[in-house]
């Protein structure tokens, strides 16, 4: 009777609930799920579904944005500072373009030099997302390994590693990134390197903290008692159990990296014009705002805002389940 099993996904019985309330009274919330079911989660949680949709769209555009864009994102059309067509005319224009072979309209208008804003907005993920994803993944990969080493093997070397990481964290993030990019050359590769350096300490710290939390766990000692080498204990047992905080942090970091990439271009220390990049587009449109030419900045801005929110929503959804 006492030995009831809890198969994955089953709904808790009074015992489950009270077990979590009674013996360890520090528990924060009543855990409701044991294993995540992404498909069900997508169906049931609107926010999560919204986030996933946005992220999927952004990734799609990163691959195919420049391919499907109606105009060359980096080639001036000759129509300078044209506003977007009236929203009521869009269905008609859409039919004209697709079925009647008319020249595609400038859905989002054009900027001062005649670049098509719609084409640039949907082509930008190739730059923004590429930089952000690579930088976030790189900093996570290197950061978790270093964090694991620092937490698992406490010695002079890892002590130096942690002090360096501390020092890196005391740097003003934005200015450090600006220095790294501006002084080493404003190329995509250099931005990736700068972002990786700036975000790595977070992963080192998170993983190390998690590893330190895992070290007193019984399964670590059990792994030693079974006869594993220290290296096997660290990488086969502790590492897989210490990844969750980093994985949650990953989506936040991608969001922040997009923000920083566009922020750097906005202040003139990011990618060079005329690259199709959201921050750069906003910067180019900024002086026009007080002249009433709102379309130059608003569309790329909405794109950034939604993308980052999408990543945050996905991250939050996963975080809720893993906690």
């Amino acid at each position: 009777m006492n030995e009831t099993t809890n198969p994955p996904g089953h709904t808790p019985t009074p015992e489950d609930i009270d077990q979590h309330i009674e013996p360890h009274m520090m528990i924060e919330t009543v855990p409701t799920k044991r294993k995540i079911d992404l498909v069900r989660k997508f169906k049931e949680e609107k926010l999560f579904a919204f986030g996933v949709t946005i992220v999927a769209l952004a990734i799609f555009l990163a691959f195919f944005g420049p391919v499907i864009s109606p105009y060359d994102p980096n080639f001036a059309t000759g129509n300078v500072s044209v506003g977007p067509p009236n929203i009521l005319d869009w269905p008609g224009l859409f039919i004209d373009t697709v079925f009647l072979g008319a020249d595609p309209p400038h859905w989002f208008g054009t900027d001062n030099s005649g670049l098509d804003i719609f084409s640039r907005t949907i082509s930008a993920p190739r730059t923004d997302l590429q930089i952000a994803l690579i930088a976030a993944l790189l900093s996570m990969a290197v950061g978790t390994i270093l964090g694991l080493l620092a937490g698992f093997f406490k010695n002079f070397l890892t002590e130096i590693l942690m002090r360096t990481s501390d020092l890196l964290q005391a740097f003003p993030v934005f200015i450090t990134a600006m220095i790294l990019v501006a002084l080493s050359g404003r190329s995509t590769g250099n931005i990736v390197v700068a972002l990786t350096i700036v975000y790595m300490p977070i992963f080192i710290r998170l993983t190390r903290a998690e590893v330190l939390g895992q070290m007193p766990r019984g399964y670590v000692e059990a792994a030693r008692a079974v006869g594993n080498s220290e290296f096997a204990v660290a990488f086969r047992h502790v590492l897989p159990n210490s990844l969750v905080p980093s994985l949650i942090q990953l989506s936040t970091t991608v969001g922040f990296a997009i923000l920083l990439t566009s922020g750097l271009s906005f202040v003139g220390a990011g990618v060079r014009p005329p690259t199709a990049e959201w921050g750069l587009m906003i910067a180019l449109g900024a002086p026009q705002i007080i002249l009433g030419e709102w379309w130059q900045s608003i569309f790329p801005g909405v794109a950034i805002s939604l993308t980052i929110f999408g990543f945050a929503a996905v991250g939050h959804g996963l975080e809720e389940d893993y906690r």
């Binding site: 019984g218 399964y219 000692e221 059990a222 008692a225 047992h237």
Partner: peptide, 16 residues
Amino acid sequence: RGNLQIVFQDPLDSLN
């Protein structure tokens, strides 16, 4: 270690 083994206090905690 194959000859000398141990069973721990907290079963949930001691399994990966």
